[in-house]
Every structure is written in C-alpha cells, then in structure tokens.
C-alpha cells in the first residue's frame, strides 16, 4: 500500500481589504484637496499670444480678476457684479497703487466688459494690469464673423 503524504495546499487568495483601504484613503484625500468651486472659476479659455512671459510673482501684490461672462465676474475667487467690484477692491487693497491686477478673461468676452473693468481699476488708481494668456498662434481676424451681442442684450437673455 502506498502512503501519500498529505501536503498542505493553500489556494491563492487575494485579500481585497488593504486594497479597498488604500483606494478609499486616496479618494478621501483628493476630495478634501480639491475645491470644486475653484476648479470652475479657473476653467477659462484664455486668448493666445506669442509675446507673453512668465510673470515674476515674488515681490508683487496680485489681485486676480476672472471674467467668464457678464454674469460671471470673480474677484479673488468671489463672484460679484461689476458694481460691487469697486468697494470690494478698496476693502481688500486700500492702497490701490501697490497692487497688480491679473486679468483672466475668457477669449470670447466682449471688449466692452474688459473696458469697464479697466475703467474701474483706473478710477481706483490701479494702473498695473496683466492679461493672462496662453502661448500659441493668434486667432485670425477672419475667424470672428459673428458679433458678440451687446451686454444689455446678454443680460436679458
């Protein structure tokens, strides 16, 4: 009679517990890290330019103005109307002349809106303005066939 030695045999079992632990840890980490409202504000299609340069922010007091449309103007991440912008700037930067305004405006925004913001800055003695751009070829003038509707019409729509 042949005697077989019984060998201990264990099936390959993948323990999912640490995997799930790590995945959830990562998910929680990124949920805490990402502020979705800021993602929306930063999501702007900037105009292309070839003469732009990397701004040296080390010794400049910056004020970020994001313009997505007539109804979406943000000052330092806070949404506000054009009328409320002046008092808000004065509150944040009482000595206007020391600050540089960084304008991140959508490329399709009508110039009228940019003009009004620049006028507001000028009245508050903020004369240093930077326009945020992306490195790239300029959009040819011929590609702009449809006109932007005037601001008062945009509001009523």
């Amino acid at each position: 009679m042949r005697a077989y030695r019984k060998r201990p045999w264990a099936a390959l079992v993948v323990d999912m517990t640490p995997l799930i632990d790590v995945i959830f840890l990562i998910i929680i980490f990124f949920i805490i890290l990402i502020n979705f409202s800021q993602v929306h504000i930063r999501n702007v299609v900037l105009p292309n330019a070839s003469q732009g340069y990397q701004s040296d922010d080390s010794n400049k007091q910056k004020m970020l103005i994001t313009i997505k449309s007539k109804d979406e103007i943000y000052l330092e991440g806070t949404q506000m109307s054009l009328a409320d912008m002046g008092p808000a700037i004065v509150r944040k930067h009482p000595r206007g002349s020391d600050v540089t305004a960084l304008m991140r405006a959508d490329e399709e925004v009508p110039y009228e809106l940019i003009k009004l913001v620049m006028l507001k800055l000028a009245t508050l003695n903020i004369d240093k303005v930077q326009f945020a751009t992306w490195e790239g070829e300029l959009t040819p003038l011929a590609e702009s066939v449809t006109a932007n509707p005037p601001l008062d019409r945009q509001v009523s729509e």
Binding site: P47, A49, P110, Y111, L113
Partner: peptide, 15 residues
C-alpha cells in the same frame, strides 16, 4: 476696439 469685439482679438492687436 468696438464694444462687440471679442477680447481675443484685442489681445491679438496688443500682442
């Protein structure tokens, strides 16, 4: 620039 000109073209001219 006229009021209805898209900002990208104003930047284009400035550039």
């Amino acid at each position: 620039a006229a009021d209805d000109v898209p900002y990208k073209h104003v930047i284009g001219v400035y550039n």
